[in-house]
Amino acid sequence: MNISLNLNGTATDWEVAPGQTLLQALRASGAFSVKLGCETGDCGSCTVLLDGQPVNSCVVPAARVNGSRVTTLEGLLGDDLMIRLQTELVEQGAVQCGYCIPGMLISLYALLKQGPPIDEETIRHALTGNLCRCTGYVKPVEAARAVAAVLEETS
């Protein structure tokens, strides 16, 4: 079936199978930042924004996003907040294998977009859908806190 969506700011038409997931459709369209880790909604390596909300794209039917706005990391590479987050994660040493990182960035971005106040607790809750087997979450959380602190100061 044919669907139209706004993918990373660009009007896009996709031919999708009724049973296809958004994850499959995104990777097929070349959005390789969206990773496959479990296909059961648990790991979050496939997290993207659907109309601004973080979703695990492996448990979203592709057909559903007809008429919606879908944002992947590729679509946020020029965004100031995203760049700040990426830089902080990199500098804090939060990137190990990096497989979980695009999904984590999307979840953190969605959280920080809401604006302050954002404390460690809210950050940890926002990351419940993003499993990371490398870092123990210490440095990713530290990095997000640092960005949240900057936002707080400048807001």
Binding site: F32, S33, V34, K35, L36, T72, L73, E74, L77, Q86, L89, V90, E91, G93, V95, C97, G98, Y99, I101, P102, L105
Partner: peptide, 19 residues
């Protein structure tokens, strides 16, 4: 604590994994 050599490309989601 130098910047991990592959960290930026990973954080940009570049297509660097097998798949």
């Amino acid at each position: 604590n130098v910047i991990k050599i592959d960290a930026f490309k990973l954080a940009r989601g570049e297509p660097v994994f097998t798949d």
